[in-house]
């Protein structure tokens, strides 16, 4: 994985074909996506304190996440158990729904000082792939802007512990950052409105 947009286009193409060849009827995308709202908020807008927003995340990121949960390659508390309940075509259909929603940035409690320091960290280490302060879903990176801080911290802890695989570029960038810088940039993402 990385910021390869060509790969993403190819992936979306294959997703589309898989969807078209699906014969069995599934529940509608909205019907399935609505079952997520109890934890991730109505229309994917989480009111926190930890569950991430799903509104506006890219199809590729949603599909990749659900598959990783299914396969156990991404640490989870409960999503590994839930992801196993959906077929490939069902995951694609939910992905399409969440991608169609505007990106939602929650009002997340954060430390303003850390967020300010995090802005520099972002510019030098993260901006290349996590465009627009982490608010651009135009690739296979997740939306980081306006995500709940505990979730941002869990995600980074899993990357750093090696329980979740980091894309090569991210590994290189993260290696150069101190613990304080990482903490700061997470506050920076949380502070985005």
């Amino acid at each position: 994985m990385g910021c390869n947009k060509k790969a993403l286009v190819a992936l979306i193409g294959s997703v589309f074909m898989a969807g078209a060849s699906q014969v069995l009827a599934d529940p509608s995308a909205l019907m399935m996506a609505n079952t997520c709202a109890g934890c991730h908020g109505t229309e994917g807008k989480s009111v926190g304190p930890a569950s991430p927003n799903l509104a506006g995340i890219s199809e590729a990121y949603f599909i990749d996440s659900m598959n990783a949960f299914k396969e156990g390659t991404r640490p989870a508390t409960i999503m590994d158990r839930i992801a196993k309940g959906y077929s490939e075509s069902q995951i694609e259909s939910m992905a399409g729904y969440f991608a169609s929603l505007p990106v939602y940035k929650a009002s997340v409690p954060h430390d303003a000082g850390k967020a300010q320091m995090g802005a520099d960290v972002y510019d030098k280490g993260c901006a290349k792939c996590h465009d627009e302060n982490g608010a651009l879903a135009d690739d296979d990176a997740g939306i980081l802007a306006g995500q709940w801080l505990p979730w941002l911290k869990y995600s980074m802890a899993d990357f750093q512990s090696g329980h979740r695989e980091m894309p090569k570029k991210m590994k290189k960038a993260v290696k150069k950052l101190s613990d304080d810088e990482i903490e700061a940039v997470l506050h920076f993402f949380a502070s985005q409105k």
Binding site: C39, T42, S46, T77, I82, G85, P150, Y154
Partner: peptide, 27 residues
Amino acid sequence: SGGLTPKDASAEMRGREVQYAYSWFEN
């Protein structure tokens, strides 16, 4: 699909479940 928290889940993951329980509640 589905099932229970694994009996041998780490303290870290059980702690995350508390935060997700509160997220469940608010959402």
